[in-house]
C-alpha cells in the first residue's frame, strides 16, 4: 500500500497501451494499478485505496460506462477520467457520463494527461476532505504550479494528514 504516491487505477483493454502508460506514470511518482478488464478494476477498487481512475469505454465484458457507474456508486468522492478512442462518442447524449470528471480522447499526450490527473486528484481530495476550492487553493500556495509532481505530493499530504 502506497502512502507516498498517488494510487491510480488504469483500465484499458489495449495491453501495449496499458503497459507503456503504466511505466511512464510510474516514473512520475504514481502508483499505477493497470488492469485490462472492467471486472478486475472493481476488484482492485475494493482492495486498494484508489485516489483517481482512468477508464477506457469500449472493453470486452464490462464496459467503461458500467465500471464508471459502479465506481461512482461505491466511491462517490472518487474522480474518474474517461480516456476513449471512439471518435463519434458524444458525452452530451449520455446522461450517465455526467458522473465522470472529464473526457480525454486517444491519443492523448502525457502532459495533458498529467495536468488532468492533477486536477482530478485535487477534486478527489476536496471531495474526500470536504474542502472548498478556496481552501485548497490557499493550501497549495507557494507550490510551483508548473510542476505536477510537487502539486501531487502536496495534495497527497493534504489527503493523508487530517
Amino acid at each position: 500500500m502506497e502512502k507516498e504516491h498517488i494510487n491510480l487505477l488504469l483500465v484499458d483493454d489495449e495491453d501495449a497501451l496499458l503497459e507503456s502508460i503504466r511505466r511512464r506514470l510510474q516514473l512520475r511518482d504514481f502508483n499505477v494499478i493497470a488492469v485490462n478488464r472492467g471486472e478486475k478494476a472493481l476488484e482492485v477498487a475494493r482492495t486498494e485505496p484508489i485516489d483517481v481512475a482512468i477508464l477506457d469505454l469500449k472493453m470486452p465484458g464490462m464496459s467503461g460506462k458500467d465500471v464508471l457507474i459502479a465506481l461512482k456508486r461505491d466511491y462517490p468522492w472518487l474522480e474518474v477520467i474517461i480516456l476513449t478512442g471512439h471518435g463519434s462518442f458524444d458525452p452530451e447524449n449520455e446522461k450517465e457520463f455526467g458522473k465522470a470528471y472529464t473526457y480525454l480522447s486517444k491519443p492523448c499526450d502525457l502532459n495533458t494527461l498529467l495536468a488532468t490527473l492533477v486536477a482530478a486528484y485535487k477534486k478527489t481530495v476536496m471531495n474526500r476532505r470536504g474542502m472548498t476550492p478556496e481552501e485548497i487553493a490557499s493550501r497549495l500556495q507557494g507550490i510551483d504550479a508548473a510542476s505536477p509532481r510537487a502539486i501531487l505530493k502536496k495534495l497527497k499530504e493534504l489527503d493523508s494528514n487530517v
Binding site: 489495449e14 501495449a16 507503456s20 478512442g85 471518435g87 463519434s88 486517444k106 491519443p107 492523448c108 499526450d109
Partner: peptide
C-alpha cells in the same frame, strides 16, 4: 460515411495512442 468515420476513428485512435505512449516511453 459519417458513421463509418466514427467507428473507424476508434480503431485508429487506439493504435495512435499506443504509438504516442510508446514514443513517449522511449523519450523517457
Amino acid at each position: 460515411v459519417g458513421q463509418l468515420a466514427g467507428g473507424v476513428a476508434h480503431e485508429i485512435n487506439n493504435p495512435l495512442a499506443i504509438i504516442e505512449s510508446e514514443s513517449g516511453l522511449i523519450r523517457d
